[in-house]
Amino acid sequence: MTRDNARKAAVRARMAATGEPYNVAARAVDQDQTADQADPHPAARQPTDTNPPAWTLAPTEAEALLGITAEELGIRALPADATPQQRAHAEAKWRSADVDQPCRCSGDCTHGIPCDADLDDGDRCRGRLVHVDRYPGSMWGVIEWWDVHECDTCGDRYGNGVRLPAIPFGERRADGVTVIYDGVRHPNFPDIDVDDPGIERCSSCDGDNAPECDDCRIHDDPDEDYDDELDEYEVYG
């Protein structure tokens, strides 16, 4: 994939993830690249950790009834000696909490604060924000994450960046490759189906809901050559 096509893919991925218009998303991608002073090196997937953590926290009875597992309780359920990969996976996997409950992320979010958005009738929304997602927010800065909050009343969504120095979503290798930890969903580096190497599999719906899936729609450019795009990734079985 050419440098220009890589940039377009990154811009479309950010648009799909944040709802930003093209010019805003393009500016953010360009600033990200300039700040990191890095070439668009390929991304690699860290091999899966074969030793799952010994969870130190179990779901409550109410959480279990909702199908919430220990894996979805966030970093607070990990042991103190959890690996960086396990911590990143937990930070990307937690289940959203009710607005009256503490958020299951590691912190630095605005879960539970008033929405106060302008409504069509001139009033202000009296709802509260729910932290619904956190995923990598940079192609190269591995401590840069992106938060998504949604109002529990009007449904408005808000996105913002957050820096988590203690929870990198991957590693930067000496050869310039960004290694994304397994189990972390990165909007700019969707997983590739190794059984069908000519097709990228969506990291959100795995291709099963492509007509409706926003993440699938970022790959709808007929000018893209996905065979060339495979050269931009390293995939570990």
Rank of each mutant, 00 (worst) to 15 (best):
P102A: 00
Q85T: 11
R14D: 09
E212H: 14
I75Y: 01
D36V: 14
D100E: 04
S204V: 11
C154P: 08
S203K: 08
N188P: 02
L73T: 02
A43M: 13
R185P: 08
V11E: 09
D81L: 04
P190E: 07
E171G: 08
I199H: 15
H131K: 10
R217G: 13
I143G: 11
T34N: 06
S96F: 04
P190W: 04
C151D: 01
Y226D: 11
Y158E: 07
C213F: 09
I192G: 10
R172H: 10
S138Q: 01
N51D: 13
A28H: 07
E144N: 11
V99C: 02
R12S: 09
D49Q: 12
D133P: 08
D100F: 01
G67T: 02
R45I: 09
C103K: 01
P53D: 11
Q31N: 12
Y158S: 05
W146N: 09
R27C: 13
P84N: 03
A210D: 05
C103M: 00
P222F: 06
E63D: 14
A25H: 05
A82C: 08
G112D: 08
S203F: 13
D100T: 05
M15G: 00
L164D: 06
D215P: 00
D81N: 12
T69W: 07
P40H: 09
A17D: 10
H111S: 03
V29A: 01
D227F: 12
Y236D: 14
T153Q: 15
C151L: 02
D195K: 15
W94V: 09
A80K: 07
D4V: 07
R7C: 06
D175N: 14
H41F: 14
L73M: 06
G141E: 14
G155I: 06
D214E: 14
C109Q: 02
I113N: 06
A44H: 04
D152P: 05
T153K: 12
L73K: 07
E20G: 05
P84K: 11
E229I: 08
D196Y: 12
H89V: 11
D116P: 00
V29R: 08
I218G: 03
Q33A: 12
T153C: 14
Y233E: 12
I143R: 11
N188A: 15
H111V: 08
I167F: 04
D182P: 00
P52D: 03
C103D: 01
V184A: 06
G183T: 05
W140G: 08
N188R: 14
C216E: 07
T50G: 04
A58K: 12
S204T: 09
G198D: 15
G74W: 03
A166K: 06
A90D: 05
E171D: 12
T48W: 04
L119S: 08
V132F: 02
C105A: 09
Q86S: 06
R157L: 12
G141I: 00
D36Q: 14
R45D: 07
D32N: 13
P84R: 12
I218D: 03
P53W: 10
N23H: 10
G137K: 02
D225M: 01
R134H: 03
G122A: 05
A210Q: 00
S106G: 14
P40S: 01
H111T: 02
D214H: 12
H111E: 07
D227W: 11
P190R: 03
D228S: 04
T110A: 11
